[in-house]
Amino acid sequence: MTNARTFLRTALLATALIAAPALADGPIKDRGEAVERAHFERDRETILAMAGDYKVRFDMQESTPWMAGYEPLDRKISGGHESVRVIEDTGTKIVLQHLLVVGAEGEEFVIKHWRQDWEYEPERILAYAGPNTWEWVEMPERLRNGRWSQTVYQVDDSPRYAGWGEWQDSQGIRRWRSNWTWRPLARRDAVRDPVYDRYASINRHQLTPTGWIHWQDNTKMMPDASAADGLSPVVQEYVLNTYDAFDDYSVAAADAYWADTAGYWAAVRKEWDAVAEERDGITITEEAQTGTVISGRLLTIANEIRAGELNEANAITEARGLIRSATAGTAKTSDATLEESGAY
């Protein structure tokens, strides 16, 4: 009986991951040009409102175990200061770059953190497909109208996860909810070598009176050859990242970092995009401490530009070579590591 229940539960989850986007959010009927334009402009205002300077609280809690004998981890709370900047806005695409500022006054250190790209009615998204692999996934045409995709990128601008959804107003709250998405493990989990190797997630963004929240509903999944789709659920996790407007920290340090390295990171983003186009997705080895095997070096290059140890042109040439070799499966692990929150 237990095996039968396990099989049914796994089959239902697999069905949900495939069908949920259509079942949870049907097509948005044509509302007329004026109404569509008003919704579009309101959506843009909401996304742009996430830019700013914040005190951030990362709250992670494993809750319900789905596997017999699994003991949920204790709740973990951390935080810091983060500046979010609009680095691209074409109208239908908005790119927000997060910059963590850590350390005492006068000794601040800036960590290029995650990035979120919002695109209006895209034809496809670059989605996580399993360990070390991201593939282009078509967004169903009947679901594009009025919806935005959100693609989240890792600290080295390699992809992390992507999904789509509609910005809505309900109960007096402005919110966006994704379809079901696959995600790679965050560093906080990857370094533990757990039995699970990915998350099945729903991602939410909501504005608050003092800023905004990023809310994740993660089902941690493990490989299981006996399961209907080769995966079984292990435990549920809820992550609430709260961004409260706050600028009593060295905001100037974040802006100085970006002023010094923006050209370099623009070239890095362009190279990742080129590889994804040419190779119909991205395949690159990841490691627990750093994310991709070249993440440490790509971040170190940026610091060397700031220190005057490497000019931008040579930095970009090296970065392009690293990305090309790593995505061809020939890169070696960098000795550099990144200490970051792992909460995105």
Rank of each mutant, 00 (worst) to 15 (best):
R177T: 13
S178K: 12
N179M: 10
N179P: 13
N179F: 13
T181K: 00
W182G: 04
W182N: 08
W182E: 05
W182I: 08
R183T: 10
P184H: 03
P184D: 10
P184Q: 12
L185W: 03
L185M: 14
A186Q: 08
A186F: 00
A186R: 13
A186Y: 07
A186M: 10
A186I: 02
R187V: 13
D189A: 03
D189M: 05
A190N: 07
A190C: 07
A190L: 02
V191N: 05
V191P: 05
R192S: 10
R192K: 15
R192H: 02
D193I: 06
P194E: 06
V195Y: 00
D197G: 06
D197R: 07
R198E: 11
Y199P: 03
Y199S: 06
A200L: 11
A200S: 06
A200V: 08
S201N: 11
S201T: 14
I202F: 09
N203H: 15
N203W: 12
N203P: 01
N203R: 14
R204I: 09
R204G: 11
H205V: 09
Q206K: 14
Q206R: 15
Q206D: 15
L207D: 14
T208G: 10
T208Q: 15
P209A: 06
T210Y: 11
T210E: 15
G211T: 06
G211F: 11
W212Y: 15
I213C: 06
H214A: 01
H214L: 04
W215E: 12
W215G: 01
W215N: 03
Q216E: 14
Q216T: 02
Q216R: 03
D217V: 00
N218E: 06
N218K: 03
N218V: 08
K220H: 07
K220W: 03
K220M: 11
M221R: 04
M221I: 04
M221A: 06
M221D: 04
M222G: 04
P223D: 08
D224L: 12
D224V: 05
A228T: 13
G230V: 11
G230W: 08
G230K: 03
L231E: 09
S232G: 10
V234L: 09
V234C: 08
V235E: 09
V235L: 08
V235K: 01
Q236P: 02
E237G: 07
E237H: 05
Y238M: 04
Y238F: 11
L240D: 04
L240H: 11
L240F: 08
N241M: 02
T242E: 14
T242W: 09
T242F: 07
Y243L: 01
D244C: 01
D244V: 04
A245I: 00
A245Q: 11
F246Q: 01
F246A: 02
D247L: 02
D247R: 00
D247A: 01
D248H: 01
D248F: 00
D248S: 03
D248Y: 00
Y249T: 00
Y249P: 06
Y249I: 00
Y249M: 06
Y249K: 00
S250I: 00
S250Q: 05
S250E: 14
V251A: 02
V251C: 09
